[in-house]
Simulated assay, not measured.
Amino acid sequence: MSGAFGGQVVLITGASSGIGAELARQCAAAGARVALAARDADALARVAEECRTHGGEALVVPTDVTVEAQCRAMVDRTVAHFGRLDMLVNNAGMSMSARFDEISDLSIFERLLRLNVLGSIWSTAFALPHLKQTRGRIVAISSLAGLTGVPKRSAYCASKHAMAGFFDALRVELRDSGVSVTVVYPGFVRSEINRRALAADGTPFGERAYLRQPREALETAACARQILRAAAGRKRDLIMTVQGKVGRILKWLTPGLVDRLAFNATASRQ
């Protein structure tokens, strides 16, 4: 992997914690120069220092990707500092947990679509001219919820399905450009995203029992390693778990069975 990223410039959104922070650390260890974007400047500074201890150069770029102008400024500052851009990782995101008929704050949908979808689209739009120059890589962190419906995650599923559709279309458009597009579909990962998920009233879900991560949840470091291997190989997509791969096939063959499995799995975690 060091051969793929050594000396390259990698811009990661949502880099203050979880998968994004771990991707930054592993990229730095592989010799990449990393630009770290998120809203929490103090958390970014801590991650940047960890990247430097791994031997990498790190730039902190406080950014709210729900604001188009800030996405442009994020890319501009990265290129101004490093002189180029080789990979964009669209990782910033938020989840939710509530039955649709119980949601009292419908702004949840706008908030998730703006962060998970528009934030990725805007970041990609401003990064693309630079990535074409370097024949670079785009990585989009979606979810298994972007492949099939998951109860109590309607807004999250909507955003991740939209994200997958956009990047699938973009991949085809960029076929002859030298820029690769890799869409990642993680399952359960031990990450801070669940604690920040929104409840029916639009407030963070916190540590409520429903969202406790299952035993089979993937560790963040292992998740990041898989993502970077897929990006290095310019893979079309990455489904991390056997269950996810089998579920994708079953949805084509017996969609009703997949619905029942999703319902039962959700019920068992309540």
Rank of each mutant, 00 (worst) to 15 (best):
R212N: 10
F263A: 15
G7R: 03
D76K: 08
R248L: 06
I121G: 12
A162K: 06
V184N: 07
E22V: 02
L218I: 10
W122A: 13
R248N: 02
V184H: 10
A262Q: 05
F82Q: 00
A41F: 07
S97G: 07
C51N: 01
L106F: 15
T78D: 12
A38F: 11
E50V: 11
T220L: 13
V242Y: 01
N194C: 15
T254E: 13
R229E: 15
V60P: 00
V10M: 09
Y210V: 12
A98Y: 00
K160M: 11
P129L: 09
G55P: 00
Q243W: 11
G83N: 02
S180G: 13
F126M: 05
I227N: 02
F5G: 04
R236V: 12
A169F: 11
Q213W: 08
R52V: 10
S143N: 00
L147M: 01
V246Q: 08
G187T: 07
L128N: 01
E22D: 07
D168R: 07
L144N: 03
A48V: 03
V189P: 05
L261D: 05
P151N: 08
R260Y: 11
R77P: 09
D176H: 14
E68I: 04
P204A: 14
A41I: 09
D105I: 07
R229N: 15
N90Y: 03
L238K: 07
L85G: 04
L211S: 11
G7K: 10
T78W: 08
M240R: 00
S159Q: 10
V65R: 06
G165K: 04
Q226S: 12
A28Q: 04
A232K: 01
A28P: 04
A231R: 00
Y185M: 05
E50P: 06
V183M: 06
W122T: 08
A32E: 03
Q26C: 02
D259N: 03
A41E: 14
W122E: 05
T266G: 14
T66E: 04
Y156H: 15
G178M: 01
I12T: 03
V189C: 00
F82A: 03
R175T: 14
A80L: 06
A221C: 14
S159K: 02
M87C: 14
I121Y: 15
H54M: 13
A29S: 14
V181M: 00
L228H: 05
R234D: 10
A230D: 09
G20T: 03
F109R: 08
A15W: 02
E57V: 08
L228S: 04
L11I: 13
L144C: 05
D237R: 05
V75P: 03
